[in-house]
Structure formats: C-alpha cells, structure tokens
Amino acid sequence: MIPRKFEYFAPRSIKEATSLLKKFGPDAKILAGGVSLIPVMKLRFGSPAKIIDINRIPGLEYIRASGGRLNIGALTRHAELERSKTVKDRVFLLSETASVIGDPQVRNMGTIGGSLSHSDPSGDWGAAIIALRGELTIQGPRKRRRMKVDDFLVDTFTSALQPDEILTEISVPIPPARSGGAYMKLERNLGDFATAAVAVQLTIDPKGVCTSAGIGLTAVGPKNLRAEKAENVLVGHPLTPKTLEEAAAAAAEDAQPIPDPLRGSAEYKKEMTRVYARRGIERAISRAKGGKK
C-alpha cells in the first residue's frame, strides 16, 4: 500500500506554511500527526500533490492556562493532553476524552488540531470541545479568525477551513468551581471509533441547580453535534433523577444517526446516546460535587 507520488515541504513558520498553501491551493494538504491523512493516501482515497508538514514549525505544541482559559496548540498530541497535569486539574473532560482515542501509538502521534480539521463525525474531540464551548483560532496568509467550534465543524469531513488556512489553537474556558465533566464512549473494542459517545460539562450551584450545561455527541450525525435540547432541560433546574431522564431522552432526540453497517442501526445509536448521556450527566454531577473536577 503505497501512496501516489507527492512533493514534500517542511516549512519552519506558520507564515511560510500559509504562503505555500496559498500558492498550491487545493492541491496541497497539511500533514500533522498523519494518523488520518497517511492511511487516506495509502488507500488512495485521496492523493494530494503537495504535502505541507507542519511538524517542524516551532510553537504549535503547547498547553497553557491563562486568563481563565486553557489554550492548546493545534499540534498538541492526544497523549500530551491525556497525561498533562494542567489538563487533568483544570479541564478533566479533555484528559478523559484523550484517553479513549484510538490506541497508545495513535495517541502518541495524532494531534487535536488534526482531529478537528479532519471533522470526522466519529472523532472524539469535536464532542468534548462542543461541551466546553471551545473556540478555535485559524490563521490564513493574511487574516486570522476565531470561531466557535460549532461553526468550525460544518459537515462530514468538512470544516470551515479554507485551503490556505491552518488551525493554530483550541481554546476552552476553564470551568468554575462546582463543575464536572465526563466523556462516555461506547466502543466495540479498545482502539475503535465510537459507536456512540457523549461529552458532558456541567456547573451546579450550592442548591443543586444546574447553572450551565454543555453536551456534545459523537458518531450519531453528519458531524459532532450539540445536544441543545438536552442542555436546555438541565439549565436552571435542580438535577433530580427525573430531570436526568428527561435530559438523556432529549439527547437521544438531538442525535441524528444514520445506520452504520459496522456499529449498529440508527435506533441502537439513539438508544445508546440516551444511556450514555444519562451516565455522563450522572458522572459529571458526582465530579462537580466531589470536587474531582
């Protein structure tokens, strides 16, 4: 399995990279971890004529907490996010999400920016960043833009990136006290993409009323989805078992799965979304109360 021939570039700066992208247009593809792109090229589903390897650009791999936000360089590997103490302590949901992506070797190479740019509806990062209401920074040859993850993820394997743009940073607000998050993923076996998965991020006031809720869904639609109905069921209400059931049922309504010959029917995926949403909300509540993120 050998890819078609291509020309290889390893720019040393974002500026150099975006000017190469501008010059080559849609013929060029960025190479980050390569864990999605290289298999695509080997199977010849796609054969870009120019490869722009961004791994030699300094300063794209970082995790920084500042001004109430956690800012993550696009080239940060899943494994870094899994093990980082800053991430574990400040935004546990990210750490938990990273830990269930693929297998250890995939996590050692694959990047959060590559995953979001790839916009695979079965990708795990999209759901977690939706739950956290994250924002992405995109650099073009001249302009820099920042957008909500909801607007960045457009459709199946389609992001808002123009061919000459690079995703440079992912930024999420650090949740306040009495917050908890959880990523619940159903997979057929270790290392598999999700059959269905639910990311939950909640904040609860001292009386037990939910003051904010973010819920993202994986593998149950054309892209990672926000379970908006489910969020609305939770916010402003005390988190009773009945509210939880209603929210979980709403998450299943928010899901728009299509049947997957490998991972189950649309009905099954909807039902699993309900079950995993309820478990995710329960786990997030116990973390919010238990002080464990």
Binding site: V35, D53, M109
Partner: peptide, 11 residues
C-alpha cells in the same frame, strides 16, 4: 512508540 507504517521516512 509509533506505528512506522503511518509515517513517511522524510518526517
């Protein structure tokens, strides 16, 4: 640790 079938030698 990485899977060397999923990296180009030039990388």
């Amino acid at each position: 640790s990485i899977k060397s079938c999923t990296m180009f030698a030039v990388q």
